[in-house]
């Protein structure tokens, strides 16, 4: 869902650029709380995996393909603020190096894929977590649900931006129906990939999954032995 140059007019592109800068600035602050010696390398891996995953388009229907967006996946694995940074780096490299997504549209793409998809994916994950049993086994399906809602959310957000500053006179209901239709299908692929990847990581290293921390908290307290009295507050 990379928006090329030309789809949105200059004022809208400037506005999404400002939103993107503000969002990344907030994420830079928030990510400090999520990142430490252990999780920072995982964040680098998550960004690399999302870039790679976005290259592998899967067919959905009727000669149309989709690919992983990775917003929910990155948020659950690395934390929501860190995920915004991961997706922003992916989009920057894609725009500058691969000419995938426009340069004037970079702010739009960061807004849609690094902000909307990550935030909605994370909120969907947290909402599912409150409903599902508080077990480690609930983390992958909750992540899958976050993924499921994140893709149509980004599609709706694009439609909203097009309503503000689309360069062609397109009836909005037609656009919304088409965007939601295709991206609900693509969202199913997103759901499957996210569920399997998070499930795989939870199976081998649940301690590295940001979204599993709440579930693991009690267990971790039992394992740790107080060797360093000064470090007890951390």
């Amino acid at each position: 869902m990379h928006v090329p140059d030309g789809f949105l007019d200059a004022p809208t592109s400037l506005a999404t650029g400002a939103v993107a800068v503000a969002g990344v600035a907030i994420a830079l602050r928030g990510a400090r709380r999520e990142l430490d010696d252990r999780t920072a390398p995982i964040a680098g891996l998550v960004a690399t995996f999302v870039f790679a995953g976005q290259m592998v388009n899967f067919p959905v229907a009727g000669g149309t393909s989709g690919h992983l967006l990775g917003g929910a996946l990155a948020a659950v694995l690395a934390g929501p603020f860190t995920a915004v940074l991961c997706l922003s780096v992916v989009l920057l490299v894609q725009a500058l190096l691969m000419a995938d997504g426009g340069i004037t549209a970079l702010g739009t793409n960061v807004t849609l894929l690094a902000l909307v998809a990550v935030v909605v994916g994370w909120l969907g994950f947290r909402a599912a977590q409150t409903v599902l049993p508080k077990r480690l086994a609930s983390v992958p399906p909750a992540a899958a649900f976050g993924a499921l809602v994140s893709v149509p959310a980004a599609a709706v957000a694009f439609t909203g931006l097009y309503a503000l500053g689309g360069t062609a006179p397109i009836p909005l209901d037609t656009l919304l129906t088409a965007m939601l239709g295709w991206h609900t299908l693509i969202g199913i692929g997103e759901t499957v990939i996210t569920g399997f990847v998070v499930g795989g990581v939870v199976a081998v290293r649940p301690d590295l999954v940001y979204g599993a921390r709440r579930v693991l908290a009690t267990r971790e307290l039992e394992i740790r032995t107080p060797q360093d009295p000064a470090g007890a507050t951390s």
């Binding site: 990510a31 400090r32 920072a40 680098g44 891996l45 960004a47 870039f51 920057l92 490299v93 190096l97």
Partner: peptide, 15 residues
């Protein structure tokens, strides 16, 4: 490129 940029950024930001 993504690995170097994202890995470097998150490593620099870490607690």
């Amino acid at each position: 490129t993504v690995l170097v940029l994202a890995g470097g950024l998150t490593w620099a930001l870490r607690r």
